[in-house]
């Protein structure tokens, strides 16, 4: 098992490198140079400009610049935010926990909805419950998160006035503060979680239906185990294997949804940081946040791989 994890790690590193190359090439191809503002600013003397260009290695050939950049990234030197006047890594580390908290809770919510609904629907295919679940799932993943977010605000904040629609992160402590923190996270987590739950329910249902008609399920039933035990121990356990992969493939979309959700509810996470830095032309932050998102996707793929190996003995024994 540990060997298997190690092997997956070895596969993850080239893909991280690949992503970094893609990002770097995009940046290098971009018209104009990231320091053009400095370059055109008459107040900056030419020798300072030249020094800056030399410092950032802008006159080197592209592969050298890439090596330069990637080693700096690896050393934790992620650059300096032009706008906020702090190091990019400090800025990101400040914002990252909020994003992970929102994304994590919504994934949890999605699983809590999708697994029972998908499993139950699959045990009664074409029943009323199944058809309702299917319809809701279909609507759910056709509704873009920005629209659900707006609908939620409209209903729960504007009309009913139950929940706050702006996320605040005043530090505090005590039960009332904690409750407030939970209360304000309800809508973003719901928006993101329901969106995820919709596609997950479909995955779970179809994976269950694929497994339920296999021979070993009949074997299990022939043992007199009872419906519930057969479904949980024999069908679900096997159906989860493809579901893990499908969920991992969804991760880029999840983080996309997180950016939108953070923007709607003004959650101070890295998604809203990305948008505000784009609007403020803060290139180092834009690059770094994009790279962090890429790392998160790769990390979650890695977790999915490990889960996969744990669920399927045929993989880890190879």
């Amino acid at each position: 098992m540990s060997q298997y994890i190690l092997r997956r790690l070895m596969i993850a590193i080239p893909s991280l490198l690949g992503i970094s190359v893609v990002l770097f090439v995009v940046l290098a191809l971009a018209p104009g140079d990231p320091f053009s503002e400095l370059a055109t600013n008459p107040n900056v003397p030419p020798e300072v400009q030249a020094a800056l260009r030399a410092k950032f290695g802008l006159d080197d050939p592209i592969y050298l610049r890439y090596l330069h950049w990637i080693t700096a990234m690896a050393h934790g030197d992620w650059g300096f935010s032009f706008v906020s006047r702090v190091d990019v890594d400090t800025l990101i580390l400040q914002r990252l926990p909020t994003t992970l908290y929102v994304v994590g809770s919504s994934q949890l919510l999605a699983l809590l909805i999708a697994i029972p609904v998908g499993v139950y629907a699959a045990t009664r295919p074409y029943s009323l419950f199944d058809q309702l679940a299917n319809t809701f799932a279909f609507i759910g993943f056709s509704l873009p998160t920005f629209f659900t977010g707006i609908l939620f605000i409209l209903v729960f904040s504007v009309k009913l006035d139950w929940l706050p629609f702006v996320y605040t992160s005043v530090p505090g402590s005590g039960i009332p503060w904690l409750l407030e923190m939970i209360r304000q996270a309800i809508m973003p987590v719901m928006v993101l979680g329901l969106f995820q739950a919709a596609s997950m329910t479909r995955f779970v249902r179809s994976a269950m239906l694929d497994v339920i008609r296999l021979d070993y399920v009949t074997t299990a039933r022939a043992k007199g185990l009872g419906q519930a035990k057969v479904i949980v121990k024999h069908v679900m356990r096997n159906a989860m294997i493809p579901v893990v992969t499908l969920i991992a493939l969804q991760m880029p979309a999840v983080f996309g949804g997180a950016i939108v959700t953070e923007q709607i509810f003004r959650i101070p996470g890295i998604g809203s940081l990305l948008i505000s830095s784009i609007l403020a032309n803060d290139t180092p932050v834009v690059m770094a946040v994009t790279f962090v998102f890429a790392c998160l996707v790769v990390l979650f793929n890695l977790i999915a791989d490990v889960l996969y190996g744990w669920l399927d003995p045929r993989i880890s024994f190879r």
Partner: peptide
Amino acid sequence: MWLTDLFLSLPQLPLLLMLIYLFRDG
């Protein structure tokens, strides 16, 4: 196929935003 898998694990929206940010003026 490796390239395809690589693109599949790219964070689409951030990259989309970044590309538009970098190229829109040109």
